[in-house]
Design a binder for these strands. Structure first.
Lengths: 190, 190
DNA sequence: TAATGTCACTCACCAACTTAGTAATCTACT
DNA sequence: AGTAGATTACTAAGTTGGTGAGTGACATTA
């Protein structure tokens, strides 16, 4: 794990020297230009020399909400994030617990429990696979489908409207950017 | 909500009919035409009548990766997702446990534990707030900063390179799209 | 000064994951 | 055909990281 820690001043930051503002909230430990400095903090805030553009900060914000939204939506629906994630995937068609586990990034033991809860809430049901006695197919129910749509429809409508405003030329540019960003993030997972 | 699901053939997918592939891994419950199948599944798969564009599917993939990456990266680093999230936020400057809790979307009881673990691993330290005896500031250490940079730098470099290829005109288009998408998702949280 | 609010923290509990192992079934190789 | 090995779904027990409730120290306001 990160043998990187070469020099290490570990504990102490240089010492605040700067007199404290009496301000309540900000806290400002004195490290980097936050409130008063130049407008930007950088895509990696804390490494100010990395230049930032409007598109990059917009991308960063999108990624940030993408991480936040599922947890919030799931909670509102009374589901765990794994359950919501499963439900969304089940919209595409039936799938077995083992494959579902791969989609979720958890063990099959965990996904077995996820399916239990889904079935318990009436959002999905188990069905035995014709032709392979080991397999179980998990199938979304009407209720599960309605739940997902109810939670996500407004977003899809907004997105579709936004998307419709793009010209053909714009599409090429935007899609290339999105796919490039996706690839960059996927690389972190390797 | 979503009276949309008007007709819907609900549960049953047409039935797999297709003979099973002997293949070990894929298992292919008929789910996503990802690599090989017909190009599109629909932004809301399971509601085929919703039209999909290249940009929308690219956006969907980006969002999906954004949800997946943090968990994978955190695990590789031996951190919980909350710890990684905190660390990333701490790059911007010190913050108290209560505010950190708001950022993470958890209770302050939980964030107290997060800070404990961060401090235990040497990634951050507690410092008492000058001027307000109740407050504690959580400050990232050099080691914590190095950890984040080590994990995320390759991504930022790729993104910066990608971003640099945009013309001024492109930027306007892309940024508008990204901000629009962000807004659409944020609305789900309200 | 007293009342009220805020912050960081602890405690008991719980949900959702992990590892380790099971029985049933399928596949491949003699 | 018979059997060894994979694969699937599941269970059991333990761990992790969260919640809700409540505490004491301090700050702010009446």
């Amino acid at each position: 794990m990160s043998d990187i820690s070469s020099k290490q001043t570990v504990g102490q930051q240089p010492a605040p020297s700067r007199a404290r503002r009496s301000k309540g909230a900000a806290a400002d430990g004195g490290q980097h230009a936050r409130a008063d400095g130049p407008p930007e903090v950088g895509l990696v805030p804390g490494v100010p020399e990395w230049r930032t553009t409007g598109t990059l900060t917009a991308l960063q914000e999108l990624v940030e909400v993408s991480e936040t939204v599922p947890a919030v939506v799931a909670r509102k629906a009374g589901l765990s994030t794994s359950e919501l994630h499963s439900l969304r995937h089940l919209m595409r068609g039936p799938i077995g617990p083992v494959d579902l586990a791969k989609v979720l990034g958890v063990t099959s033991a965990a996904s077995s429990g996820v399916v239990d809860r889904l079935v318990g809430h009436g959002h999905a049901e188990r069905r035995s696979h014709p032709g392979d006695g080991r397999r179980t197919e998990v199938v979304i129910t009407e209720r599960g489908r309605a739940e997902v749509l109810a939670r996500m429809t407004p977003m899809f409508e907004s997105l579709a409207a936004l998307d419709a405003t793009l010209s053909e030329g714009d599409r090429v540019v935007v899609e290339r950017y999105l796919r490039g960003a996706t690839a960059a993030m996927k690389n972190l997972m390797t």
